[in-house]
Amino acid sequence: MFDHIHLHKTVYRRGEQPLSRISPETLPVERLLELPDDTVFFQDCSYCLEGVGFSCSNHPLTEFALKNFFYIQSFSILDAGASYYTRRKNFHSYLISYTYEGEGYLEYEDESCSVKEGEGFFIDCRKPHYYRTEGTHWKHSDLHFSGSYSEYIYQQYINGGNAHFCQPLDGEFLPMLERLIELHETIAPCRELQISSQLESLLVLLLCKTPKYENTVKKIPEHLKYLISYIENNYAGPLTLDYLSEFSSISKYHLCRLFKKYLGFTPNEYIIRLRIENAKKLLKNTMLPANKIGSIVGIQDENYFYRMFKQRTGLSPHDYREHG
């Protein structure tokens, strides 16, 4: 586990060094993880570190990566003793913690749970949280990250269940995590983009394993799947709501509810967007006039096509062809 990746070793022994009181917002995440072993109280957090830790190096991030990518704030593995704990809030980071051996304990969002081998948790560190060793030994990793649409991913994740997750030691999670840390420690072209992509894949894996997501996938009606496939192959035809309802034997009201639930659009909006996407391809790849393209994708009224296209792209068909 992480044997081929160079991590910095730190031994935490209780009662070694005092530390003056200081707000955690003034310290980077990696410094917080290297605090002396005595319990130290801050305005919004307290720690007691005990055990052996291994942590990644820190690498400067470009402004572009900070604004556009997912990025790692810190990563560490801690073989923690019985006295280890973290109590914190108002810390601007997201945390994925994963247990390799022993057992931990988490209190978060008015819930509590144990975290055993092959289990972990995903939390927003701005919210009050408390985690500690349960028993005498807890070997776990902490991945702090931020950037891009982290908040959106987190909200989708937490709406699908709770902070706790299960990912077996021999499953997909660990190889993906190791690859992420390997990328973080490698100097290579497009390194920040590769890290962001790998971190996004890890987050999507966790998101797709939430109870809500798995139950939703199982419950998607087969006749809805068939109808969507039909629409995508016949989007240029006269697909009115009445026709789709009759074709699928689903009432118009229920059909609208199903589309909104599983696709995020009404049937009419879904069809319009399909037509606009295909119109964009024709504008870029052919010299056909825009009014002809409107007819080809199923929008016969030229003015309506121009209006719908500009509403959804911000450009007229002509401007899209020239500058889009």
Rank of each mutant, 00 (worst) to 15 (best):
T266L: 07
F64Y: 13
G264A: 05
P267W: 01
Y98F: 15
E111D: 15
L207S: 10
F42T: 10
S248Y: 00
R307W: 03
Y235Q: 02
E214A: 10
L207K: 07
K212C: 10
Q167V: 11
M308W: 12
A188E: 11
F265G: 00
H184A: 13
L202C: 07
Y157W: 06
H8D: 14
Y304D: 06
E185W: 01
Q43N: 15
Y131G: 02
V52S: 11
R13A: 10
L193T: 11
T86G: 08
I22C: 13
R88S: 14
H129G: 02
G160F: 07
E109R: 09
H323D: 12
P36K: 07
L35T: 12
S141L: 04
C48V: 02
H140S: 02
R275E: 01
V217E: 11
L180C: 05
H59M: 09
E16L: 11
S196D: 04
Q43H: 15
V40S: 13
Y12V: 01
L258W: 02
F70Q: 06
C256S: 14
D170H: 15
V217K: 15
T99V: 03
N234I: 10
K281I: 13
K284P: 02
E200I: 05
I195C: 04
L66Q: 13
D319Y: 13
Y94H: 14
M1A: 14
Y262R: 07
K284L: 14
C48W: 03
I22G: 07
A279M: 12
P60Y: 03
T39W: 02
L315A: 09
L174I: 15
Y84N: 08
S76Y: 07
I77P: 05
K219V: 01
E25S: 08
L227C: 05
Q17N: 09
Q194I: 07
L78A: 10
D110Y: 04
T99I: 01
E30Y: 13
N68A: 06
S248N: 06
S20A: 15
N285F: 11
H254A: 15
R31W: 02
A236R: 08
S150W: 06
H184D: 08
E214I: 09
L255I: 05
S146M: 10
Y108N: 04
S150V: 04
H137Q: 08
L263V: 06
G135K: 10
N234Q: 06
I158L: 07
E101R: 04
L32F: 04
S93M: 03
E200C: 12
N215C: 15
D38I: 14
C125Y: 02
M287E: 14
L49D: 09
H6D: 04
Y154T: 13
Y149H: 12
N285P: 01
S196N: 12
E172W: 04
S23E: 12
Y47H: 11
L263S: 03
Y71K: 05
E222H: 08
L274G: 06
T133P: 00
L227Y: 01
P189F: 09
S229A: 12
S248R: 03
I299E: 03
V52T: 15
E172A: 10
A163H: 07
L95I: 11
D110V: 03
N234F: 06
G298C: 11
C208E: 15
G160W: 11
D142P: 00
C125V: 02
D301V: 09
H59P: 05
E178L: 11
F259Y: 00
G294P: 00
C56E: 09
F64T: 15
L174K: 09
K9C: 05
H164P: 00
D124S: 04
P211H: 14
S57F: 07
R14P: 02
E200N: 10
